[in-house]
Design a protein around this nucleic acid. Structure first.
Lengths: 161, 161
DNA sequence: CCTTTCTTGAAAATCACTATAATTTATTAT
DNA sequence: ATAATAAATTATAGTGATTTTCAAGAAAGG
């Protein structure tokens, strides 16, 4: 944890930015919630617990900065808010996501599934890939289990109620 | 063109929606700009040319409706606006995108690149895939060409100016 | 210290999008 | 046809997320 903060600090310094207390608190929240996909508002509320005087604008600015430094990735699952996901150190590709259309959960796939696909795209479309976003929308394993247990298919209409 | 409108009309009717003049004008704009990735605002401005009395809210509602009927796909490239992309008739998967970080262009890949990947995900993560989004960010073939011609690498800083 | 630069917090502004309310346009019943 | 009912539309106000502005606070250099 401290080591990662230290490395992020160096990264900031290398671009002549400082790791202010507010920025550090924000980074800590991201590290402590690495598995989640927090929105700026989420981060703000969590940071406020340890640094109550922080402003929402500062959180936005910090997240934007971290995004530029490629410490976090800004992602969007189509629900109207941006989410911020810590980039795995040493990962040479951005991880993928499984978004459940039943329960809204978001799981991550760290495995590189696109190695071959990327080769095809670079060769056939003459496109120099720098990054990618791959998200599957569907039903997660938890909801599939639940379906099995609670008597077969849940009717679509029933969910609207 | 007329045939596709007709089929969309039938699709609407099958859910007891009508193809009103406003909706038809909107669909026509989408068909006429099939290769683009228009935002709601873009569509609004284009529709206004042929139906000046239309309201922005109607365009939003129509696009939302078409999205529900799976006539269009709502996509998000992370620039803060939703874009609407006509679904290819008969395509069983959503097409992929190549977003150029130099010129901002968006190209489409209609080929199914993910067949094998989806099998792996369904099997290994026990996830029932309904849809996917795959976007590559990088340098498009046009910018690669231009680079070659105009003397090697363009310095990143130069672009900021 | 004094000046310059970077950061910040609070509040106002902006932007995309959605909901409301009154009106218009169908559709159905009479 | 015509009145009643439902669907769709427009203009506008309202939301919610994000950004900008601006005055004030810390940090770095001379």
């Amino acid at each position: 944890m401290e080591q990662r903060i230290d490395r992020i600090k160096k990264q900031l310094h290398s671009q002549s930015y400082k790791l202010t207390p507010q920025r550090e608190a924000t980074v800590r929240v991201l590290l402590e919630n690495e598995k989640d996909h927090l929105s700026a508002e989420d981060v703000y509320l969590l940071v406020k617990e340890k640094a109550p005087e922080i402003g929402l604008a500062t959180v936005y600015r910090t997240l934007e900065l971290l995004n530029e430094l490629e410490v976090v990735d800004k992602i969007n699952f189509g629900d109207g808010v941006s989410r911020y996901d810590l980039r795995k150190e040493g990962a040479d590709h951005f991880h993928h996501h499984l978004v459940c259309i039943e329960c809204g959960s978001v799981d991550e796939i760290q495995e590189d599934l696109l190695g071959d696909v990327e080769k095809v795209v670079e060769a056939n479309w003459n496109f120099r890939i720098k990054d990618h976003r791959l998200t599957f929308h569907g039903v997660c394993h938890r909801c599939i289990e639940q379906e099995k247990n609670s008597g077969e298919h849940v009717n679509k209409e029933a969910n609207k109620a």
